[in-house]
């Protein structure tokens, strides 16, 4: 993949510069450096920022958006877009609520139901896009609204609480790490985010699926004409992305101890922003999961830091907007150079 560019044996100054500024690896490095600068800056500006509690708060605030952003990364690398990740997350949370609270199934069944439901909904989007040739923007816009409505219908427009299954909130809220290292009570939600990210990254780099994700994003017609069943793979990709949204749904339901049916719309934009800040190209063919995770953290560090500094809320939104525009601009500059 394109990151390997930096490994070519030409070690001239130019290739070094190219590796730093033009390649995907360079983009990652810069994004990471920006994150460090933000953390350091906020740490200097407020004594409250670098406290363990607050850092754990940031990690926790990143978990759901991070997982959604990973789901979006796959789709965006194929050159598509998925606007339904937020409401699909909610829908999966509601499904988990229905299985656990309404029907009283064991937790394992509820978790499986949410994941399968996510995969099925994703596959539906994929089917609309691949077989019925509905543009991704429209197909997932439709799914977004459809799922939002279904969540409200199924839940009876009320939150579904998990009071009868006290082990369910534990999934996200307890801390495995805290048992091992008592001074680091990092909630499981964060652990799950990292497991999802590592798995997603391995799939993207080292499997046939990952190979096709990049290939579809680079030149879908050439892939089809190479005898690859592109329709099938697109459906698979959207289904995998949907299942990851299911994980996000479980995380948010577990964290809030409830499935909130009205929540979710707008989350897709945060996810897309994280993906873009992380250096994944909206035109497809290029991107990394690591970048997406860094992008998610940039957003949540920024949000938390500005809050800690008690910056007026209106200005927080302005700053986030500026950062997104700069990130996309950086991507465009990079593409112009190559």
């Amino acid at each position: 993949m394109s990151t390997d560019l930096s490994q070519t044996n030409d070690v001239s100054l130019r290739s070094l510069r190219a590796a730093l500024f033009d390649s995907a690896a360079g983009q990652l490095l810069l994004a990471f450096a920006s994150l460090i600068v933000l953390v350091a800056g906020f740490g200097i500006a407020s004594p409250n920022f670098l406290q363990t509690d607050n850092l754990i708060g940031i990690l926790q605030a990143t978990a759901v958006n991070g997982v959604l952003a990973v789901a979006s990364t796959y789709v965006i690398i194929t050159g598509g877009i998925d606007l339904s990740v937020g409401t699909l997350m909610t829908f999966c949370a509601v499904i988990a609520g229905v299985f656990l609270t309404y029907w009283g199934y064991p937790i394992g069944v509820g978790v499986a139901a949410a994941l399968i439901c996510g995969a099925l909904c994703g596959a539906t989007s994929g089917f609309l896009i691949a077989k019925m040739e509905v543009p991704p923007f429209i197909a997932t816009l439709g799914m977004m609204m459809l799922l939002k409505g279904l969540s409200l219908v199924i839940s009876g427009t009320k939150p579904i609480y998990f009071n009868d299954t006290p082990d369910f909130p534990v999934i996200a809220q307890d801390s495995l790490i805290g048992y091992l290292v008592p001074s680091l009570p990092i909630p499981n939600a964060v652990l799950i985010l990292f497991v999802v990210a590592v798995a997603a990254s391995v799939v993207l780099r080292s499997t046939v699926l990952g190979r096709y994700i990049f290939a579809l994003g680079s030149n879908e017609e050439a892939v089809r004409l190479s005898g690859v069943d592109t329709d099938f793979w697109k459906i698979v990709i959207y289904a995998v992305s949907g299942a990851i949204c299911g994980i996000a749904g479980l995380l948010i339901a577990s964290r809030l101890n409830s499935a909130q049916p009205a929540l979710g719309q707008g989350y897709e934009l945060d996810a897309i922003a994280a993906v873009v800040i992380g250096g994944t190209s909206l035109s497809g063919g290029r991107g990394t999961v690591l970048g997406t995770i860094i992008g998610s953290f940039i957003i949540s560090v920024l949000t938390n830091g500005l809050r800690i500094l008690s910056v007026a809320q209106e200005w927080q939104t302005v700053v986030t907007g500026v950062i997104i525009i700069l990130a996309v601009y950086a991507d465009i500059m990079r593409r112009r150079k190559t």
């Binding site: 993949m1 394109s2 080292s206 046939v208 699926l209 990049f214 290939a215 030149n219 050439a222 690859v228």
Partner: peptide, 30 residues
């Protein structure tokens, strides 16, 4: 460029584009 290659990908990915399924291990790993 339009119908034969994925120009943004490397030589290896292009050569194996039509046959990558023959070079996989369990669980779809390359």
């Amino acid at each position: 460029k339009r119908f034969g290659l994925v120009t943004a990908m490397d030589v290896e990915a292009n050569i194996s584009l039509a046959s990558v399924m023959r070079h996989r291990r369990a669980w779809g790993f390359l």
